[in-house]
């Protein structure tokens, strides 16, 4: 298995004890973030997110189908993620591995629980026909923090998406033809952010070699201090004090990242 060597790990932690990182960032600094939307002509909405050397692309596709039994009057949301073998020597082709399943589920819950997509407006005929919004996430280059990059990509792709035309008479989605209507979204954008624990340090936006030695992480989707979803990943336990510190970091970073996303999307 490819992983960060013990020697590098020791140096990374030594640096962090002094509040420093190999690439010159502070512990709670995000890398440079660029967001491009409309990267696919075929998708309803799409985005490319670069976070330092990490790159993901996200596409939104829509189709009309039956609602889920427990939400007859609401559209459906489906999030999937594929860790493409081209994006890292450690990803292999084949059935989805745990990491990509977890990433998709964490992003799904951030969007779903915050009610960011107004799914009730995506109902065509109650109990029969609703829009399904598919958010598909692909990794292009993995240099750590795919989770947060994917979350930002999903938001950007959704914001750029237009609903396809639908032929009511023949009950057919007219793929490749779009209405002027955007996907109905709420004003409050849920920002999904992950804090990692490395040694005794809490950091955000790890590079690959940092993430390799992360002992545990917490991902939180929140807007303006209201928390909508949370997932603790990896086995190391956290004291309640550490947990509170993580909430501090999220609270502080969420607003800044939100501003940077807004700026990039303009």
């Amino acid at each position: 298995m490819i992983t960060t060597s013990n020697l590098t790990a020791e140096r990374i932690i030594e640096y962090m004890e002094k509040g420093k990182r190999f690439d010159g960032r502070g512990l709670d600094d995000f890398r440079d973030l660029t967001i491009e939307t409309g990267i696919s002509k075929k998708a309803e909405g799409s985005a490319r997110v670069r976070l330092g050397k990490t790159e993901v692309i996200v596409g939104v596709k829509m189709d009309v189908g039956a609602p889920y039994p427990d939400s007859q009057d609401k559209g459906n949301l489906m999030v999937t993620a594929e860790f493409l073998p081209l994006s890292s020597p450690r990803f292999e082709a084949g059935p989805p591995q745990f990491d990509s399943i977890e990433l998709a589920r964490v992003i799904d819950r951030g969007i779903r629980e915050s009610k960011f997509i107004e799914l009730e407006k995506l109902c065509i005929k109650e109990g029969e026909k609703v829009w399904t919004v598919f958010i598909d996430i692909y990794t292009i280059n993995d240099d750590g923090n795919l989770l947060d990059a994917a979350g930002i990509g999903a938001i950007a792709a959704l914001k750029s998406a237009k609903i396809p035309k639908y032929d009511e008479e023949n009950e057919k989605t007219l793929f490749g033809e779009w209405t002027k209507e955007s996907v109905p979204l709420q004003k409050d954008v849920p920002i999904s952010l992950t804090v990692h624990k490395i040694g005794n340090n809490l950091i955000i936006d790890p590079t690959r070699e940092e993430e390799d030695i992360s002992e545990t992480r917490i991902t939180i989707a929140s807007h303006d201090g209201t928390i909508h979803s949370m997932q603790k990943g990896n086995a190391k336990e956290l004291s309640v004090e550490e947990f509170k510190k993580i909430l501090d970091i999220i609270e502080k970073s969420e607003k800044e990242i939100f501003k940077r996303i807004e700026k990039s999307l303009k």
Binding site: R109, E113, S114, I218, I220, G225, T226, I227, H228, S229, M230, Q231, K232, A235, E237, L238, S239, V240, F243, K244, L247, E251
Partner: peptide, 19 residues
């Protein structure tokens, strides 16, 4: 020893109530 080895959350909550 009272440490958190697992936590997840779905819904809507503020910091104070989460604690």
């Amino acid at each position: 020893d009272g440490k958190i080895s697992h936590i997840q959350l779905d819904g809507k909550i503020g910091r104070k109530q989460l604690e």
